[in-house]
């Protein structure tokens, strides 16, 4: 990075650290923070969407649909995320490739499973074997997002399902009395009101989501914990210009600070959001706000 970094052995402490902290690996480390934040930003709305669909399915009048929704919620919530991540990404990837394989190569006669191997025609591979590295990385990122969304979607579905049931019946009955159809009641009365009931649960879920990011490495994403372990581990002078002992402690302290900060910021933002959502709602919080304004 700096011109004096050519021979780090001769540098004083400050300069040594200025070189050490700007090496290529450290840049990857810093980039991984952005990667994690991006993943959180993308996953949260997708998981919420999946959760919404799950909740809608669970409260459907059609028995098979409602059973499907309920068993999705029960099964995925019952499994530790770490166990899920260990096999789900590969399964998801194989499923996509299998579907493409059936569509693109209908003449293929060999079985797709040969012993332990999973073989599809080259055109069905995802991404294609000769695709650029960034395509592979983006695909891996997408798989991670989908996996996270499916896991956390189940929790979100559970929370939203509870939120939908918590909207006072009187509100729905009033809507019906005004002549709204079922669909109108759902979208115009139930959905806008359920958020305030679901928000505490959803905030909790967001906190859990933040803290699940160290498991990203299982999904093939080099996340911050992976890099902290890699960088903090003992480095000998044969393989690095910056030999040092076991520094994992310091790197993990950095991560601790990052996670605590994320939590604090989220708490503040969610508190504000809650204030806004409670506005004009038929809850104790909404009542309090109204009284404050009146007084």
């Amino acid at each position: 990075m700096f011109s004096y970094c050519a021979d780090p052995n001769t540098l004083d402490t400050v300069r040594w650290f200025s070189c050490y902290l700007t090496t290529g690996v450290h840049m990857s480390f810093y980039a991984s923070f952005i990667k994690v934040l991006a993943l959180l930003a993308v996953t949260a709305p997708v998981a919420l969407g999946v959760g919404f669909l799950g909740a809608m399915a669970a409260r459907s009048d059609l028995l098979p649909v409602s059973l499907l929704g309920k068993s999705y919620i029960a099964i995925v919530r019952g499994v530790p995320d770490v166990a899920f991540f260990l096999f789900f990404v590969i399964a998801l990837d194989q499923m996509f490739e299998y579907v493409r394989h059936r569509a693109i190569c209908p003449d293929w006669t060999q079985p797709v499973r040969q012993g332990s191997e999973f073989l599809v025609c080259a055109q069905a591979k995802l991404p294609l074997g000769n695709a650029a590295e960034w395509v592979h990385e983006t695909y891996g990122f997408l798989l991670a997002v989908i996996t996270f969304a499916i896991v956390f979607g189940a929790f979100a579905a559970n929370v939203l399902f509870g939120g939908m049931r918590a909207v006072p019946r009187a509100q729905l009955e009033t809507a019906e009395a005004y002549g709204m159809s079922r669909r109108q009641t759902f979208w115009r009365v139930l959905v806008p009101q359920m958020w305030v009931y679901a928000l505490p649960g959803l905030s909790n879920l967001w906190m859990v989501l933040i803290k699940a990011t160290p498991l990203l490495f299982l999904l093939g994403i080099e996340d911050i914990v992976y890099w902290a372990r890699e960088l903090g581990g003992t480095k000998t002078s044969r393989f690095s210009s910056y030999p040092h002992g076991d520094w994992r402690m310091w790197y993990f302290l950095g991560l601790l600070a990052f996670y605590l900060m994320m939590t604090r910021v989220s708490e503040i933002v969610l508190e504000r959001l809650m204030q806004r959502l409670t506005h004009g709602q038929a809850t104790t919080g909404g009542e309090k706000q109204r009284k404050r304004v009146a007084a």
Partner: peptide
């Protein structure tokens, strides 16, 4: 409560 809820279990185990 803030420290234990705010950090991943993974890191707590390490420390």
């Amino acid at each position: 409560i803030f420290i234990f809820r705010g950090s991943p279990l993974f890191i707590q185990f390490f420390f």
